Amino acid sequence: MKPTTGTAAAAAAFDRRWLLPLAIGSALSLLLLVLLTTFPLPFPFPSSAASRPPNPTLFVEHKLAPSPPSTASPPRFAYLISGSAGDAAALRRVLLALYHPRNLYILHLDAEAPDSDRANLAADLADHPVIAAAANVHVIQRANLVTYRGPTMVANTLHAAAAFLYTNQHPHLEWDWFINLSASDYPLLTQDDLIHVFSKLPRGLNFIDHTSNIGWKEYQRAKPVIIDPGLYMKKKADVFWIPQRRSVPTAFKLFTGHNRCPTAQICCFFSLTSLLITLGTVKTSS
C-alpha cells in the first residue's frame, strides 16, 4: 500500500506545479482581451490595409486602351480548292467549311476526275440557297491534268489567280489575299475569325521570306531539269528528273518565297498539317 500512496502523492505534486503558470497565462489573456476591446490600437488592422485600393502602378490594365474601330472594309479572300479523282465529296466538304458570302471560290477537279463529278458538283452547289444567292463559287469545267510538284501544278495556280484578277475589274469583287488549298485540307479557324484577324493587318503585308540569297537551292532547285508528264500525257504520272543540269540564268535573279505572276496581290497558303499561314507578295517581274 505504501508504494501506491507515494505514487499518488507524487502525481498530485506534479499537477500542482502547472497551476501557477496556467493561472498567470489565463490572467494575462483576459487582460489583453479587455484592453483590445476597450482601447483603440495606435496601428491599423491588417484587414484595413487589405481594403485599401491597390496601387495602380503595380498593374498595366489602366495603361491599356481599346483599339479604335477600323473604318476600312473587311478583307476578302480568294480561294482555289483543287482535287483529283474521287475528291468531289471532300472538295465540297472543304468548301462548306470555308464558305463565306464575302469571299470568292474556284473549285478545280483535274482531268483525272470524270466529267460527271464536275457536273454533279456544280449542280449541287447551284441548288445550295446561300451559295446560289451569293454567286461567288465557280467550278472549272475544262479541267487540266495536274501533277504534284510539277509545272502543271504551278500553271493551275496561276490560272486560278488570273481568273480572280479578272474579277478584280469589278470593285465589289476585289480581293485581298489568295489562298491555295487542296481537298485534303481543312480550316483551323472560322472565316469570321480569319476575316476579323486580317482586318487589323495592312493589306500589303508580306509574311514570306523574300530573298535572292537562295544558297543550297541553286543546286537542288534551280539547276535540275524536271519533266512533267501532265504536259503531254492524258494519264497522271509523277515528275522525273533527267541527269543533265542547266546553268543558273544570268538575265534575271531567282528569288525564293513566292511564285512569279503579274499581280500586286498577296498569296496566302495554309494547311492543316503545318498549322502555318504563309503569306507572300507576288510582284510583277521586270
Rank of each mutant, 00 (worst) to 15 (best):
A72H: 08
A90D: 10
P114L: 05
A134S: 15
Y79T: 00
G86K: 02
S84M: 01
A134L: 03
D124M: 07
E112K: 04
H138L: 02
D110R: 00
H108D: 02
A134R: 06
A97V: 05
D117N: 09
P114F: 03
P101S: 12
R93D: 12
A119T: 09
I140L: 15
S82D: 00
A123F: 10
L98F: 11
I81K: 08
V139L: 07
R93K: 15
H108S: 05
A123N: 09
L125Y: 03
H100L: 11
L91T: 03
V94F: 12
L107A: 07
F77W: 15
A133N: 11
F77K: 13
R118Y: 06
P114S: 04
D124T: 13
A119R: 08
S82W: 14
A132P: 12
A88H: 03
A133I: 00
P69M: 06
N120D: 10
A133C: 11
L96I: 02
A119K: 09
F77Y: 15
L98N: 12
A88R: 05
L91S: 08
G83K: 12
R93C: 10
K63I: 02
A65W: 12
A111I: 01
A89K: 04
G83P: 12
A90N: 10
N136G: 15
N103L: 10
D127Q: 08
A134T: 11
E61V: 05
R93M: 13
L107K: 11
V60Q: 13
H108I: 04
A78Y: 14
A72K: 04
L104Q: 14
I131T: 13
D117R: 11
L121D: 06
A90K: 13
G83S: 10
A111R: 07
H62Q: 09
I106S: 14
I140S: 10
R92D: 03
P68D: 06
P114M: 03
S82Q: 12
R118C: 02
A135T: 02
A65K: 09
L91N: 05
E61Q: 12
V94Y: 09
L109C: 10
A85H: 02
P68M: 06
F77S: 14
H100E: 04
I106D: 12
A133H: 11
L109G: 08
A126Y: 12
A90Q: 14
D117Q: 13
P68N: 02
H100C: 09
S70A: 03
A88M: 02
L96F: 06
G86N: 03
A88P: 04
H128I: 01
D87T: 01
H100Y: 11
L125G: 02
L64A: 04
A111Q: 06
P114T: 00
A65M: 09
A90I: 09
H128W: 00
A72E: 13
G86Y: 01
D127F: 01
E61T: 04
A132W: 00
N120H: 03
R76Y: 08
A65V: 09
L104E: 15
A65E: 14
L80F: 08
N120V: 03
S73D: 15
E61I: 01
R76A: 13
L121S: 06
P101I: 07
I81P: 00
Y79P: 14
P101M: 09
A132V: 01
